[in-house]
C-alpha cells in the first residue's frame, strides 16, 4: 500500500487553500489556476483510498465559502470532477505523460463547465472565453509539478 499519510494530504490541501486565499487581482486573478482542485485530483489519482469524492465535496464547500459564491457550486463541480477522475484512476497507469496531461486538462474543464452551468442558472455573471484560462494554467502547473518529481502513475503502480 501507499505510504501516503493522511496528514500529508490535508496539509497539502491546506496549502492549496491558502494559495487560493492569496490576494490575487487583475490579470493574475483571471489566470489563477484552481490549486485546490489540482491537489485533490493529484491525491485522488495517487491515493484513492485516502482522498475520495467526499473529501472533494467537503473541500469544495470551503472553497465556496472563500469565493463567496452560491454555497455548494464548487462542491458540486469538485464532486463531478472527482467522479470522472476516480472512474479512470485504475487506467491511469497505462497513460503516457502527455495523455495524463490531457486527462488532467479534461478534468479541470469538466469542473469549470459544471461551475459555468450553475452560474448560468443563477444568472448575473458575464463570462467570456477567458473563463477557461485557469484550466490551461492549471495544466502548466501540473506539468511543472511532474517535472519537479511529483508523480501519480509511478506511485500507483508501485503498490
Amino acid at each position: 500500500m501507499h505510504k501516503t499519510k493522511l496528514q500529508t494530504i490535508y496539509l497539502s490541501l491546506l496549502i492549496a487553500f491558502i494559495c487560493l486565499l492569496l490576494p490575487w487581482s487583475g490579470v493574475a486573478l483571471k489566470l489563477r489556476p484552481d490549486f485546490v482542485l489540482l491537489v485533490i485530483i493529484f491525491w485522488i489519482l495517487r491515493a484513492p483510498n485516502k482522498c475520495n469524492i467526499g473529501t472533494a465535496w467537503f473541500i469544495g464547500l470551503w472553497v465556496d465559502l472563500a469565493t463567496g459564491g452560491v454555497f455548494g457550486q464548487h462542491a458540486l463541480a469538485y464532486t463531478v470532477t472527482t467522479f470522472v477522475a476516480v472512474i479512470y484512476q485504475r487506467r491511469l497507469v497505462l497513460f503516457s505523460n502527455t495523455q495524463q496531461l490531457v486527462y488532467v486538462l479534461l478534468l479541470l474543464l469538466i469542473s469549470q463547465l459544471t461551475l459555468l452551468t450553475v452560474k448560468t442558472f443563477a444568472g448575473n455573471e458575464s463570462l467570456g472565453w477567458a473563463y477557461f484560462l485557469p484550466s490551461f494554467t492549471g495544466v502548466i502547473l501540473w506539468q511543472t509539478a511532474v517535472a519537479l518529481g511529483l508523480n501519480t502513475s509511478r506511485a500507483s503502480r508501485s503498490k
Partner: peptide
C-alpha cells in the same frame, strides 16, 4: 483587503 475571488463578479 482583497478583490473578490471570482474574477467574473465585481466584488
Amino acid at each position: 483587503l482583497h478583490v473578490g475571488r471570482d474574477p467574473f463578479t465585481k466584488k
